[in-house]
């Protein structure tokens, strides 16, 4: 189980990396943490001709609050989020999810942006990015664009990122104190990819009614998905246990689950119902 051969490049600057990407196109692949890429190469399911290692590019190594958003550079490791990176619900949600991402020796290497670029359907960061409305800052030689999360995820392991582009930064809104965020996931063994997860975010108005609601589901379809009907059902009323349960039931019915030998569709729906309710309840209990 040895990786296929490749050429290795270790640019020192963003510009150099983008030039390499432009040169190698489809044959090139960014290496950041490598924690998803290397196993797929070991199984020879992925065989890039060139790896462009961005780990030496200092300008990609940042994580800061700025203009009401949390800006996460391409070299920010999962482990960084284990303690809140910012005060308020966003930092707390990221910390809550971080401990579910694989294990400590993976979290020291794997990156937030790498997860977004890899787009595993069961990625915690992808699910949060969709739930919170992340924005991807994508660079290419001589160009830059911002892609909203809603347009980012296209299918399993496929995003809006073009072969010659680098996902340089992801930004998340820093939610205010009137938001309640919840997270729940189910896996069979500690640290494994989840069979289902739910990320929820509710904004409560001063009367305690739900003013805004976002529910994202991960690990249950080809991409993370929004449970919009379920979220909408919560609006304009207090989040009572009955309403949360009803919303969870709506979430469980409102999507086409992926099926496999270990997870039949109806079981996936059971998990979505349970995870959605637990995420919602957990967010309000806190």
């Amino acid at each position: 189980m040895k990786c296929p051969p490749f050429d290795y490049h270790a640019p020192r600057s963003q510009a150099e990396a983008l030039a390499l990407l432009a040169r190698h196109g489809e044959e090139g692949k960014i290496l950041a943490g490598g924690q998803s890429l290397v196993p797929t190469m070991a199984f020879r399911l992925s065989r890039p001709a060139s790896l462009i290692d961005i780990n030496r590019i200092a300008e990609l190594d940042h994580c800061r609050a700025e203009g009401g958003r949390l800006r996460i550079g391409a070299l920010t490791r999962h482990a960084r989020f284990e303690r809140p990176v910012a005060p308020g619900p966003t930092g707390a949600l990221l910390a809550r999810a971080a401990e579910h991402i694989a294990h400590a020796p993976i979290r020291t290497r794997g990156t937030f942006c790498g997860s977004l670029a890899h787009a595993d359907p069961a990625s915690e960061w992808c699910c949060i990015a969709l739930a919170l409305g992340a924005e991807m800052r994508v660079l290419r030689e001589g160009g830059e664009r911002l892609v909203p999360a809603a347009d980012w995820f296209q299918s399993v392991f496929t995003t809006a990122l073009a072969p010659d582009e680098l996902l340089a930064e992801v930004s998340l809104p820093l939610l205010g104190p009137d938001w309640r965020c919840g997270f729940a996931e189910f896996n069979r063994r500690a640290g494994d990819f989840a069979l289902a997860m739910a990320v929820t975010a509710l904004r409560l108005d001063p009367a305690g009614h739900v003013a805004e609601a976002r529910i994202a589901l991960g690990g249950v379809a080809g991409t993370p998905i929004l449970a919009e009907t379920a979220a909408a059902s919560l609006l304009g009323a207090p989040p009572t246990p009955e309403r949360l349960r009803a919303a969870a039931a709506l979430a469980a019915e409102g999507f086409e689950p992926t099926e496999d030998a270990q997870v039949p569709a109806d079981y996936r729906r059971d998990l979505v119902r349970a995870m959605t309710r637990r995420a919602l309840e957990g967010s309000l209990a806190a």
């Binding site: 199984f43 069979r188 063994r189 500690a190 640290g191 494994d192 990819f193 496999d260 030998a261």
Partner: peptide, 16 residues
């Protein structure tokens, strides 16, 4: 075979 990796075939960890 559908269980060709340790991500599919699940020996337990200390947590289980």
């Amino acid at each position: 075979p559908l269980t060709g990796s340790l991500a599919d075939y699940l020996p337990p960890s200390a947590a289980e």
